[in-house]
Amino acid sequence: MREHDLSNARWRRSSYSNGDGGNCVEVADGILVRDSKAKDGPVLLLSNSAWADFLDTLRH
């Protein structure tokens, strides 16, 4: 497994988050995705095209 330095990642919480600890995701440049409740948990590293496909799927 390849390790990545995430110490400088600038995370942004989903605009659908209501701030009460519910089911949320955060994204960072790169494209990194994590569970907002598990900041030290696993992180998904996606290519730009995979992220675009994911967003396109959500829109439809």
Rank of each mutant, 00 (worst) to 15 (best):
L55M: 12
L55P: 00
V33M: 13
G22E: 04
A50K: 05
H4F: 13
V27I: 12
W51C: 02
L6P: 00
A52H: 10
G19K: 12
R13S: 09
R13L: 11
G41N: 08
G41L: 11
R10S: 11
V25M: 09
I31W: 03
R12Y: 05
F54Y: 15
G30E: 02
L44P: 02
V27L: 10
I31G: 00
R2Y: 03
A38N: 12
D5S: 05
G19D: 11
E26W: 03
A28M: 05
A52V: 04
S14Q: 07
S49H: 10
D29S: 14
L6R: 02
A38C: 03
G41I: 08
D35R: 06
M1R: 07
N8F: 03
K37T: 08
D35G: 06
A38M: 12
G21Q: 11
F54M: 14
L46D: 01
V43A: 08
N48R: 13
S15R: 09
D56C: 03
S7A: 10
T57V: 05
D5Y: 05
S17C: 14
I31K: 00
A52T: 13
L45F: 08
I31L: 10
S15N: 11
D29R: 10
E26K: 04
Y16T: 06
L6Q: 02
V33F: 02
P42E: 14
G19N: 09
D40G: 15
W11H: 05
E3Q: 12
L44S: 03
F54A: 12
S47M: 07
S17D: 10
L6A: 01
P42L: 13
N23M: 11
M1G: 10
S15L: 09
S7Y: 02
K39Q: 13
N18G: 15
G22Q: 07
L46A: 12
D5I: 03
R13H: 03
N18T: 15
N8I: 02
M1E: 07
R2H: 09
C24T: 07
